[in-house]
Design a protein around this nucleic acid. Structure first.
Lengths: 115, 115
DNA sequence: TCATTATATATGGAAAACCGGATATATCCT
DNA sequence: AGGATATATCCGGTTTTCCATATATAATGA
């Protein structure tokens, strides 16, 4: 069954949201950290160095979009990646973006302040 | 030479910006369209159905971040993808996000309106 | 039970991104 | 040169995202 224009548009919207979730430095750092194995919230907070509240909302975002899984152990919650494909995707993206690292770093905002 | 925490942080920032550029439905649609071959601006405008001005700024964004190349031919400008890896990345992301399409569609904003 | 620890959520404000509409620039044609 | 066409950029306003701070919930231990 061929896809209609509407369904491909709908997938594009989903894909854009998917990417938007990945489009935040803190969330990338969290995902990168989790590629080294499961971590509980305190460990993540310690590694990243932001407030627990901030980390927790970023984790909620990643959890909602199913990038990560949460497992409650006593009073801690252990987070882990829930799909190995994410690691592939991230590795590929890191490779592509590290080539352009300086260039991308010089772009502090999306919009007509390029140049 | 091992990477220090700062340089990995810098790559993470670059990667996040890389993803942020991909985190817009219109830009995803443009890139998807360009996977079928080079197109000039008028063709892109026609296919996507947004104003020429809007398409043009999205193209500027993609061009700046080197997702696409622009080639001036007479008074038209022909755009094309400038790295086949982008296609792989997009295909992988589309696959991952189409699995969660309904779920991602139900998320209209990033932030505490999940649940 | 009460205090403590670990994590999650709510709220208000600042910054960033997106859009529509107007305008500028560059090329072609007569 | 002057008009038409193709594309790019600017501007003001609205929406979205991010953050800091405060507070809520849940589990543990005294």
């Amino acid at each position: 069954m061929p896809r209609t224009a509407e369904t491909s548009e709908s997938i594009d919207r989903a894909t854009a949201r998917f990417f938007k979730v990945l489009g935040d430095p803190t969330r990338i750092r969290i995902i990168s950290l989790l590629t080294t194995g499961p971590k509980n919230v305190s460990e993540i907070v310690e590694q990243i160095g932001l407030s627990q509240a901030r980390i927790s909302t970023h984790l909620a975002c990643l959890r909602w979009c199913e990038f990560v899984q949460a497992k409650k152990i006593g009073r801690q919650v252990e987070y882990s990646l829930n799909d190995p494909s994410i690691e592939h995707l991230l590795a590929l993206a890191k490779q592509l973006s590290s080539v352009r690292e300086q260039h991308l770093a010089s772009c502090t905002r999306i919009g007509p302040d390029w140049i």
